[in-house]
Amino acid sequence: MKHDKRPVNLALTTLRFPITAIISILHRVSGLLLFLSLPFVLYLFQQSLASIEDFDSLQDCFQSVILRLVVWVVLSALWYHLIAGIRHLLMDWGVGESKTGGRIGARIVLVFSMAAILLTGIWLW
């Protein structure tokens, strides 16, 4: 099949994305990020359990702002993916599937994940 004659509008600056689309792509991006951070998380996990010396030196490393920032980004992705994932599961279950329901759910996801991300930041600092 050839679609050459179809009008194409991928001018991203002129398209308006509804909140549900943003929620959805962020879920994908956060999932991708979590996958990429797996080796890093496993490394931290390994150091935390290797020995008391490694545990303590890991705690010292957390003095570094950069490490804390990286961990914050990973945890933020985790919270977002978790909360948006729960909305996804609820919608698979049939909850909030309507157009307005989807929008309300998307707002709840944004508010909850923002709160979780902020709290994590406070906890880390």
Partner: peptide, 17 residues
């Protein structure tokens, strides 16, 4: 490959405790 390594590595960490 990455996921397999992560799985084996994770098991190794858990078993070393």
């Amino acid at each position: 490959l990455i996921l397999s390594i992560c799985f084996i590595w994770g098991i190794m960490i858990l078993w070393s405790v």
